[in-house]
């Protein structure tokens, strides 16, 4: 456990000046900022539509969730998996890392967990900023009715789903980036996978849930809203989430065997 802790600490220390770390913070700030600015500058139009508070929150947070779920999220995950490994490939530091008196599994697990943490941080900021900026809009434009609905449980549910559904992609991309030092191979495979995921998720292919890349999109599809119930209230642990977690667990273990067999030439 101590090894895992110091390895995580070292991962943070190494990456705190890199784009990968700052992307986790800048991405939500920029996207939420832009959406909120859009709502602010077009406030009259939005108010004129007379949306009930639930729908207003749904539209407002859906703007961020939509782009995230379909496009940015898979690429962001691909980029994180790449950059956590690339820091060692680029500097030729794998040999140094594995020549330390540290347990190999802890080194590997710390890298993986750090990538998970960066994704969590990013999504956590998305949820928090959506909530905060929504209330800020209410203060700036009192005619909005953001204050009449509490979106907290919806935001937590939606982003938790997005987070969990991304873990399958993360584990897969993590292995690719572990094996190859260049950017193009994992990025290329990830790109093709993402496009495939978007298409299969959108046409509603029966087995789309077996493709890790389609899981974030699938997870955010709100299927069949029962009348009279809150449309923003949905279960977290659906089939997509379980699939993603199973993928993540299996690929994480395979990744470890790759690490132990990895010849450091």
């Amino acid at each position: 456990m101590r090894t895992l802790y110091i390895s995580l600490k070292s991962e943070f220390y190494k990456s705190r000046k890199t784009l990968a770390f700052w992307a986790a913070i800048l991405l939500p700030v920029i996207i939420c900022g832009l959406i909120s600015f859009g709502f602010y500058s077009e406030s009259e139009k939005v108010i004129a539509a007379h949306n009930p508070p639930v729908i207003l929150w749904a539209k407002y947070s859906g703007a961020a969730l939509g782009v995230m779920g379909f496009l940015i999220m898979p690429f962001y995950v691909i980029f994180m998996a790449f950059s956590v490994n690339n820091i060692e490939h680029k500097n030729d530091t794998w040999k140094m890392l594995f020549a330390q008196p540290l347990n190999k599994f802890a080194i590997y697990a710390a890298k993986y967990l750090y990538a998970v943490f960066l994704i969590f941080l990013c999504l956590f900021l998305f949820a928090s900023l959506t909530f905060a900026f929504g209330h800020l809009l209410q203060v700036l434009v009192p005619k909005f009715n953001f204050n009449q609905y509490n979106p907290l449980s919806f935001l937590i549910n939606a982003y938790a789903k997005l987070f969990l559904s991304a873990l399958g992609i993360l584990s897969f991309q993590f292995i690719l980036s572990l094996l190859w030092s260049d950017f193009l191979k994992p990025m290329g495979i990830g790109f093709v996978g993402t496009i495939m995921g978007i298409i299969t998720a959108n046409i509603g292919w029966k087995y789309a849930y077996l493709i890790p890349y389609s899981l974030p999109a699938l997870a955010l599809k709100i299927t069949k809203v029962k009348k009279g119930t809150d449309p923003l209230d949905f279960p977290i642990f659906t089939q997509e989430i379980w699939t993603s977690l199973i993928y993540a667990a299996i690929l994480f273990i395979i990744g470890y065997f790759i690490v132990t067999k990895k010849s450091i030439k």
Partner: peptide, 13 residues
């Protein structure tokens, strides 16, 4: 303690 081939150094640090 070891120094193997090119020193393993993080260039951005």
């Amino acid at each position: 303690g070891a120094l193997v081939e090119q020193p393993a150094i993080y260039g951005h640090l």
